[in-house]
Design a protein around this nucleic acid. Structure first.
Length: 655
RNA sequence: GGGCGCGUAGCUCAAUCGGAUAGAGCACCGGAUUUCUAAUCCGGGGGUUGCAGGUUCAAUUCCUGCCGCGCCUACCA
């Protein structure tokens, strides 16, 4: 609604400027006034025009206001301050549309979007860093879907990398486990936790002597090769850990459609197909001397090629070279990534084979890449737009892939390739100490310490969730002894998930989260449960009053009576915030920043809580005013539930 | 050395391509008719937005230079 009116206003202003001054501005800036008394939209337009028109801003603003006339949905325009033009909407018009849940028709965007997130190495339990990735990714998926986009959710599995090799080495050479023993362990519920420790031990063991490291390299080669016992054990381990990751993420209502694996990228020869094209197009060049002698290299992203017009042809300064194919002929991960991304855009000319892998309790089927494949499978890849949720440390690699696509002439694909970059989750030194890790003096003085799977240093996702559930369960137990234990468990889980998801979303993407248990375990203040509680309060009003909030009819209400005068500003602010939800969702998608929606939810909940205190509804003597207040609660409740659903948070029945 | 990012209240963070008096939460202090359940609400203190210049009617935001911090910068994935 808010967005719809803004568009209408922009259009009107454009027409006016064209007709009156014959001016075409590239962009009409529309802001939100600092206070609701000033109206709903503010235009600093007059300041911009002052120079062009050689008139005082204030005078221009007055002229614009006088000449603008009327506009549907708007009450009036006025001049404020040194030359702001403030627009006031017709409050009753907006409220009525909102109460009736009228959605302005939006043009459907065609083309499928591919969002890839999580991508946890299948060699150990997921930790809080992975949670940030998965929650950001899943929320972005929900944002896109709520805007009507068709989305494929992928989780890339690097099942042939060194991390997997390390656990395999750990099991076979350090723990001396047989295949049968590993199979038995893999059946155990917390196999990923077991691997967590094995991985950390193996990493330490490498430091002991050089032979151990040789074993690692040999194991890695066997895994990459495939078709041998080592590869088979690696597959066994990585698949079992992968299942655990899916279970962990499912606890947070995070699901995937397809799991492409690196093993298939190798076995189905994606790279060979890409290599040919990369050589033909000159993206890759062969180095015949220098430190990268014998390698196929490409220009490192960000080392501008435009400026060095002096170097002729395809010469790339040594420090700007990124090795794609090693001198022994093997391809590095960036190369595989280029091939994989050509597949995503349908540019490779090859496809995976697919088989069913995991069925969610709700019946949703998750597919996985495979060598053989099932005959009937959904169509993946070949999309119009992609988003890769990958942390900021990999931005250079991501940019290299984008440059490769560009070099191949696929500019459109490159333009629709978004590295959805975010910063890592680290631990506060205090938190690290709580976990029993001893830190160096240097680390203690830092604001945060990076987690390290290699050192087994971090907070496991399931542990954190268990802690949150236990803490929420305590509260629910004491507040609602009348409920069954199952019901209380269920509510506690919803609260825990709400707290965790909100926590990961409240920070903007490029701020490092210094994780601290006290903050993450809080259910008060700016948290998910705060917003959930606001919904519960709204529901309670209807429950106690004997009404159904979802069937509440606003037909008879005279909104202008209750919203028009300035004494109604407080309630109007709440209506306005509710009207902004879809606008905020649009902002989140445009900027790839889910934090805006989290903040919006909190603000809406905050305004509602104030309203809740100020205006007792059920005791309201004036029946028509009571209906109006009920309509207010119904609309806010509906918008909050919707917005919470978009960030993947459910509102419990009671709290 | 080069690339990317960050520096805002005691702490953790916001501030929508530059806009009106820089906002929240936590912590601290003081309050809220035992009510639609207080996981809430109201009030209070707390800021030279790292420093110095520049551009602009307007700078936390853009530009330049410093200072400080983080990440990336392997023929590892």
């Amino acid at each position: 609604m808010y967005r719809h009116l803004e568009r209408r206003l922009t259009q009107k202003i454009r027409e006016f400027l064209q007709q009156t001054y014959s001016i075409e501005l590239p962009r009409i800036v529309i802001e939100q006034p600092p206070k609701v008394e000033f109206g709903e939209y503010a235009l600093p337009l007059a300041f911009e025009l002052a120079k062009k028109l050689r008139k005082a801003p204030r005078k221009i603003a007055e002229d614009v206001v006088a000449g603008l006339g009327t506009l549907e949905g708007f009450e009036k325009f006025e001049v404020a301050g040194a030359g702001y033009i403030n627009a006031r909407v017709d409050r009753a018009y907006v409220a009525k549309a909102l109460a009736n849940d009228e959605k302005p028709t939006t043009e459907a965007v065609s083309g499928k979007v591919l969002v890839e997130h999580s991508s946890i190495n299948p060699n150990k339990a997921a930790h809080i860093g992975h949670l940030r990735n998965a929650i950001l990714g899943d929320t972005f998926v929900r944002l896109l879907k709520s805007a009507g986009r068709a989305v494929d959710v992928q989780n890339y599995i690097d099942n042939t990398g060194v991390q997997v090799a390390d656990v395999v080495v750990g099991f076979l050479h350090l723990e001396k486990k047989s295949r049968v023993e590993i199979e038995q362990l893999a059946e155990r519920p917390q196999f990923d936790y077991f691997c967590w420790d094995v991985y950390a031990r193996a990493s330490q063991w490498y430091e002991q002597n050089a032979d151990n490291k040789k074993l690692r390299l040999q194991t890695l080669h066997e895994i990459e090769q495939g078709g041998n016992e080592t590869a088979s054990i690696a597959e066994l381990i990585s698949t079992a850990v992968l299942r655990r990751h899916l279970e962990t993420m499912d606890r947070l209502d995070i699901e995937y459609d397809f799991l492409p694996r690196e093993s298939e990228i190798l076995h189905l020869h994606f790279w060979e197909a890409a290599f040919t094209k990369l050589k033909e197009s000159g993206v890759l060049t062969f180095e015949s001397e220098g430190k990268n002698k014998g390698c196929w290299v490409m220009r490192r992203a960000g080392t501008a090629s435009a400026k060095d017009s002096t170097t002729e042809g395809t010469e790339i300064a040594e420090e700007d070279q990124k090795v794609i194919v090693r001198s022994n002929g093997t391809v590095g991960y960036v190369g595989k990534d280029i091939a994989y991304h050509m597949w995503k855009f349908g540019l490779l000319g090859r496809d995976f084979n697919y088989e069913k892998f995991y069925r969610y309790p709700n019946g949703h089927e998750c597919w996985i890449s495979s060598d053989k494949g099932a005959p009937d499978h959904p169509h993946f890849g070949d999309v119009a737009e992609i988003y890769n949720v990958i942390d900021a440390r990999q931005s250079e690699a991501q940019n290299t892939v984008i440059e490769a696509l560009r070099g191949l002439g696929h500019n459109e694909a490159a333009d629709h390739y978004t590295h959805f970059s975010y910063e890592m989750v680290a631990l506060t030194p205090c938190c690290a100490a709580e976990l029993g890790y001893t830190l160096s003096e240097e680390d203690k003085s830092r604001a945060y310490v990076e987690v390290s799977g290699r050192k087994g240093f971090g907070v496991k996702a399931d542990d954190l969730l268990d802690k949150l559930i236990a803490s929420a369960k305590n509260e629910v137990d004491s507040r609602h002894p009348e409920l069954s234990d199952d019901e209380r468990k269920n509510i506690a889980t919803q609260i825990a998930v709400g707290a965790l998801r909100y926590f990961m979303l409240k920070f903007t993407k490029n701020s490092v989260i210094a994780f601290d248990f006290k903050e993450a375990l809080s259910f008060e203040g700016e948290t998910g449960p705060y917003a959930q509680y606001a919904v519960v309060r709204a529901s309670n009003i209807f429950r106690k009053g004997g009404f159904d909030p979802d069937k509440f009819s606003a037909g008879e209400i005279d909104f202008s009576k209750y919203l028009s005068d300035s004494s109604a500003n407080e309630i109007w602010e709440l209506w306005l915030a509710a009207a902004k939800t879809s606008y905020v969702i649009g902002q989140c998608i445009a900027t790839s920043e889910p934090a805006y929606l989290a903040k919006h939810i909190f603000q809406l909940a905050q305004l509602f809580n104030t309203f809740y205190h100020r205006f007792p509804i059920l005791t309201e003597a004036n029946e028509s005013r009571k209906q109006f207040l009920l309509a207010t609660a119904a609309v806010v409740r509906r918008e909050l539930i919707h917005a919470l659903q978009v960030i993947g948070v459910q509102a419990p029945a009671v709290m």
